[in-house]
């Protein structure tokens, strides 16, 4: 995967999180999705499924335990896509 692919992932995540948080807050890569954006586990799983389909990957749920920020999620999706 290229840098442009990474940017595509990050952009999609920010766009979707903006809709999910339903606020005017500017989403930035280092925001904590749970403590700052109040994304609950059900919303997060729905977001993950959408990301999986968009990039045709499966994200193991146990890999999500270390994911807190938007950037960490983008990095994980990028790594899985690169390895596939």
């Amino acid at each position: 995967m290229t840098e442009s692919n990474y940017n595509e992932i990050m952009q999609l995540l920010c766009d979707r999180l903006s809709v999910l948080t339903n606020s005017d807050t500017q989403i930035t890569p280092d925001m904590n999705m749970i403590s700052q954006l109040s994304i609950d586990s059900i919303k997060l799983l729905n977001l993950i499924m959408e990301i999986e389909d968009t990039f045709d990957v499966s994200i193991p749920i146990n890999a999500l335990t270390d994911i807190h920020t938007v950037r960490e999620l983008a990095d994980l999706v990028h790594k899985i896509k690169s390895d596939s």
Binding site: S58, I59, P60, I61, N62, A63
Partner: peptide, 12 residues
């Protein structure tokens, strides 16, 4: 699954 250390993939 968690105890096993395997990658856990869920389907709907």
């Amino acid at each position: 699954c968690i105890l096993s250390g395997a990658d856990i993939i869920r389907f709907k």
